[in-house]
């Protein structure tokens, strides 16, 4: 059998990758986890998680990830800071091409997650970091007693808008539909919050300012009317895009780039598994990511055993 560096390579150090690592380490696989930034993924920028069981008062994203990393390391998971540039999965032994070299592995779990989608309107890049943001916990305190906008209608948009009212005097929550997609408990809190003003059926079409952001242009999709809103900041939570560019179609993806995997988390290529937000799935939560990952690690372990026979 061809020599490999690892039984299993896990790509991504968010909740999915860390969970896969915990299971793989306990299965005594020769495993490594590659994370291009630092472990945590998107939950680092989540202010408060209250739907992950075991934390009755809720827990901050950073605290939860610290605990996951601690648990994974205690069980012996090797976590390396390294970026996966591409994959060669055309042979039974998989090659993982890294920023500074390449490793060979029997199996791969892709848990590379997703990143916030942009509005794709003029001015967005120009004012990124100078008024445009997608991290309320990082940037909320810059807007004490200011007026800001938030865009989106899902859980993230609504929960983070509520968080922003700790600082901002007013938050315009701009949503392209006439009702929210967010879970009911968040909707109730948002509707009861007198610092949040909803702007329904509307999208942001322009972002303007000088040194920093000063105003945005909002268009009502039903009446086609546009209006300017004077705001100091604009937070964007209009969904996510998968971090799957490095896969370069080596495995089957859906039309948006999310990985297609079956209920055993097997992708179109034997020995390559997927877990977490980068997978085509109806719900993307910490709870679903860790569930995916446990199955992916179990399937990977069985696959590795089968090829070693």
């Amino acid at each position: 059998m061809e020599k490999v560096d690892y039984d299993l390579v896990i790509i991504g150090g968010g909740p999915a990758g860390l969970t896969a690592g915990i299971y793989a380490a306990r299965a005594k696989l020769n495993v490594v986890l590659f994370e291009k930034l630092v472990p945590g993924g998107q939950i680092i920028i989540t202010d408060w998680i209250e739907n992950y069981p075991g934390f009755p008062d809720g827990i901050s994203g950073t605290d939860l990830v610290d605990k996951m990393v601690e648990q994974a390391k205690r069980l012996g998971l090797k976590i390396e800071s390294n970026e996966v540039i591409s994959l060669d999965v055309s042979q039974q032994v998989k090659k993982i091409i890294l920023d500074n070299g390449e490793v060979k592995s029997h199996a791969v779990i892709i848990a590379a997650g997703a990143h916030p989608r942009k509005l794709n309107v003029p001015g967005e890049d120009l004012f990124y970091g100078r008024g445009i943001s997608s991290c309320a916990t990082c940037d909320g305190p810059f807007y004490r007693n200011k007026t800001i906008a938030a865009v989106g209608g899902g859980d993230t948009a609504v929960q983070e808008s509520i968080f922003l009212t700790k600082f901002a005097a007013k938050v315009y929550l701009i949503h392209r539909r006439d009702s929210l997609r967010a879970t009911k408990i968040l909707q109730e809190r948002a509707f009861a919050n007198d610092r949040i003003e909803f702007i329904w059926d509307s999208v942001v079409t322009g972002i303007h300012g000088s040194v920093g952001l000063e105003k945005i242009v909002v268009q009502n999709l039903k009446t086609k009317e546009t209006k300017e809103l004077a705001v100091d900041g604009c937070f964007v939570w209009v969904g996510i895009l998968p971090n799957t560019d490095f896969i370069n179609k080596a495995i089957e993806l859906d039309e948006h780039g999310f990985i297609i995997a079956n209920d055993r988390m097997e992708t179109s290529v034997p020995g390559v598994f997927a877990a977490g937000d980068g997978r085509k799935t109806p719900l993307r939560q910490v709870a679903t990511a860790v569930g995916d990952a446990a199955i992916a690690a179990f399937s990977a372990e069985q696959y590795i055993e089968s090829i070693k026979k």
Binding site: L37, V38, G40, I44, I45, S60, G61, T62, C135, T137, C138, P141
Partner: peptide, 8 residues
């Protein structure tokens, strides 16, 4: 108070 700051 910034998580990503601690990370970077």
């Amino acid at each position: 108070w910034c998580g990503p700051c601690k990370a970077i």
